[in-house]
Design a protein around this nucleic acid. Structure first.
Lengths: 101, 101
DNA sequence: TCAATATATGAATATATGTTCATATTTGTT
DNA sequence: AACAAATATGAACATATATTCATATATTGA
């Protein structure tokens, strides 16, 4: 029934907490959820979600550092998309779980 | 391939962010991970994880408010255990994911 | 090279959060 | 009622965090 307890090493603890921290902010959740439907430029994300360009850029940097998103350049425009299917699955799974209240 | 985008309502966003916030702190992760192996009293949790009783109590209240843990009384002792299998699964899944670095 | 567009950056601010200390509360025992 | 044991609570503090504003950087085209 219950699993064997194995204490968590520092590194695992850090990675896990960072991952969930990324998913704990409403703005980042909205950005990641939008990216689950395709790729969007910074400006598009800002417009779609009614956020300042600066806010989006800051949060994308955060997500980029954790390798949760990636981008592709086209001229002066950067198209962002998700880069961690596992984490995105967890997010979408939790959204569904939250929706059936 | 990509899922249809459906904007998140306030309530869903709140629940999801709160859930991940619970999982974003190392202390709470350690407590929940310990509870995944059985039920423990506040003092036992504090001793096992080398935390102050007060710290554990505060964090357990946090987790209790989100209904992630529950307790059972036996005299003056409260035995805590997890109360949300779905969230615990997500945590354990992410720990495994983080471990194979 | 200049202008226009898209994005990034840094400082400032306000707010949220985790831990600690001291103490209160609750329950059971004598 | 008095005491001990287990847990909860509240205030204080230090730190982390998200957003905003102003500005910098980078790319393209004329």
């Amino acid at each position: 029934m219950e699993k064997e307890y194995e204490s968590l090493d520092e590194e695992t603890l850090f990675i896990v907490s960072q991952t969930f921290k990324a998913l704990s902010d409403p703005t980042r959740i909205r950005i990641l959820h939008l990216l689950s439907s395709g790729e969007y430029s910074v400006t598009e994300i800002a417009n779609r979600l009614s956020l300042l360009q600066s806010t989006v850029s800051h949060q994308l940097r955060f997500l980029k550092n954790l390798r949760l998103v990636k981008y592709r350049r086209e001229g002066t425009t950067l198209y962002y998309s998700y880069d961690d299917e596992h984490v995105l699955n967890i997010l979408e799974q939790t959204i569904r779980h939250a929706r059936d209240h």
